[in-house]
């Protein structure tokens, strides 16, 4: 092997220049992540007066309210919707990402562009478009009526299926891109080596391809699951607020009920959930060096 360039000690402290270059990012993180998170935490420990003003204090009452079965059910439902969304994204997105990464360079560029194109339109506009598709007089029902005139129009909008469709549609690119990146890094010789050692086309996947693309899967799953749990726009527009999810409840507490402290407590609980799940994922990481 050719001598490797001298590697920088990963534990080395960054120099002055590095700090200067990092400063904008650190300031941004402090102002828009750390401070709001602390405000949220502080707010969740307070109370509200009858006019909806926050009274700062120290009370765990808001957290006690979280244990109400109504909210627990909504929490669980949100996690269920997010899990279903993530599962469907994985099922649809992984094969797409895999073939994208293995396609000829020219085809690959075109397909990648197609994955990105939806981002050029506002997220809300795209969700309204789904309403136009799923409505009783919408495109999908028009298609059904044309193919099967005997069928009654399907009631698609304002159902859990519509919500999941909207969520999968919105978050699919966030799964495809990280998986694509990890498949692209996968050394083709490893797949050949597996074939050479007797693994048929179907056994190469679970033994070599899947374990080596796990980092991409983990990143994609996180990028889909976390925002999907807290999503409220899609559930409002496509679910018609008939199946409230945790995101809708939080939004309501802040904007309609004007109970900021309780909304904040819900938010903090959600944040804690993600933190715990990330720590668990980290602890489960396998020992072998995964290139990713």
């Amino acid at each position: 092997m050719t001598p490797e360039p001298v590697a920088r000690d990963p534990g080395a402290r960054p120099g002055t220049l590095a700090w200067l270059l990092l400063a904008p990012l650190l300031a941004w993180l402090a102002l828009f992540v750390v401070v709001p998170a602390l405000l949220l935490l502080g707010c969740s420990l307070g109370e509200r007066d009858e006019f909806g003003q926050v009274l700062w204090g120290f009370s765990l009452e808001n957290y006690a309210r979280l244990l109400d079965p109504v909210y627990l059910r909504i929490f669980l439902r949100s996690l269920g919707f997010a899990a279903l969304t993530t599962g469907l994204c994985l099922l649809i997105g992984y094969p797409v990402a895999y073939h994208l990464a293995r396609a000829a360079p020219r085809v690959r560029e075109l397909l990648l562009l197609l994955v990105m194109v939806p981002f050029w339109t506002s997220f809300l506009v795209r969700t309204y478009a789904w309403m136009a598709i799923l409505r009783e007089e919408g495109l999908l029902n028009a298609l059904v009526a044309w193919l099967q005139p005997a069928w009654a129009p399907l009631g698609l909008l304002y159902t859990p299926a519509a919500v999941v469709t909207g969520l999968v549609y919105s978050y699919l690119p966030f799964l495809i891109l990280p998986v694509y990146a990890s498949v692209e890094k996968l050394d083709g010789a490893l797949i050949e080596a597996a074939h050479d050692l007797g693994a048929g086309p179907w056994r190469v996947f679970p033994t070599v391809i899947l374990p080596l693309t796990l980092p991409g899967i983990a990143a994609g799953v996180t990028l889909v699951f976390v925002p999907a749990v807290a999503m409220f726009a899609v559930t409002d527009l496509l679910g018609g607020a008939r199946v409230p999810l945790i995101g809708n409840v939080i939004q309501n507490q802040f904007l309609q009920a004007r109970d900021w402290p309780f909304g904040a407590a819900l938010g903090v609980a959600l944040l804690g959930l993600f933190l715990v799940s990330q720590l668990v994922l980290r602890a489960l990481r396998p020992r072998g060096a995964l290139r990713g």
């Binding site: 010789a189 080596a193 050479d196 050692l197 007797g198 693994a199 048929g200 080596l212 072998g288 995964l290």
Partner: peptide
Amino acid sequence: PPHRRPVNQVFQGYALFPH
């Protein structure tokens, strides 16, 4: 196909499974 040939290969760069 390669997975049914009684032939094995030592790859350039070895292609050891990192996981």
